[in-house]
């Protein structure tokens, strides 16, 4: 017990840095990388919370803002989780691939950390809205969507700053890099699907040959 408490204390101390990054993106992300402020435990927690917040919203947000809630059979947390993981994974992978070619200075680890720290506003807004939606009616739809958009924009802004600081790009270069990263994500997804189908075909051919041979001999 005595061992755990200081660990926890340190963990929460590290976690506070997430909020510092939210409010001071440039300095925050700089120190994240160069002063080794990033903690893998915190990043993993953020990723898990990102997935959980999405699922919690789907499951518990009020019916008014979440018509799918009435049909629980339409919600599949496994596919939803897979989609979240896939998007984040693709982003990190494509980010690393592209920025390496574009003389970016961030390592995979840096990318992993700054992406996690950037997701914080989205997580907070989603959780807050899940609670707030219980007290909101259709008339407050405008407030709801505004807050939601605010959270997404903030996360976008953090991602932009994080990319800029971590890879040492200029303002326009970052925009270009992000566009190329998105393109890379699609490319990877496309090649993945292609690979999958080709594998299926090859398997089919091998299986056909096997059948042919077993039938004949």
């Amino acid at each position: 017990m005595n061992k755990i408490i200081p660990v926890l204390k340190k963990y929460f101390e590290d976690f506070k840095y997430v909020f510092y990054c939210m409010l001071h993106p440039f300095k925050g992300f700089w120190e994240l990388k160069h002063d080794k402020k990033a903690r893998t435990a915190v990043s993993v927690t953020l990723y898990v919370m990102f997935i959980l917040s999405g699922l919690i919203f789907q499951q518990f947000a009020a019916y008014t803002f979440n018509p799918a809630a009435i049909r629980p059979e339409s919600i599949n947390i496994f596919t939803d989780t897979a989609v979240f993981v896939l998007i984040v994974g693709l982003w990190c992978y494509s980010n690393w691939g592209i920025t390496t070619l574009f003389n970016g200075e961030g390592s995979v680890k840096d990318i992993f950390h700054y992406t996690a720290y950037s997701l914080a506003p989205y997580i907070i807004v989603t959780l807050v809205l899940t609670v707030a939606s219980q007290f909101m009616s259709m008339d407050e739809m405008a407030i709801f969507t505004t807050v939601q958009a605010f959270g997404i924009l903030w996360t976008g802004m953090l991602l932009y700053c994080g990319t800029m600081v971590t890879h040492q790009y200029g303002a326009l270069g970052t925009i270009l890099a992000i566009i190329v990263i998105f393109f890379g994500m699609f490319l990877v997804a496309f090649i993945g699907v292609l690979f999958f189908f080709l594998l299926q075909q090859i398997f089919g051919v091998i299986y056909a040959i096997y059948r042919e041979l077993t039938m004949r001999y």
């Binding site: 009020a62 019916y63 008014t64 018509p67 009435i70 009616s137 259709m138 008339d139």
Partner: peptide, 10 residues
């Protein structure tokens, strides 16, 4: 009926 639900809920 989420539209009328929202009205009743308000």
């Amino acid at each position: 009926n989420n539209v009328e639900y929202a009205e009743a809920f308000a």
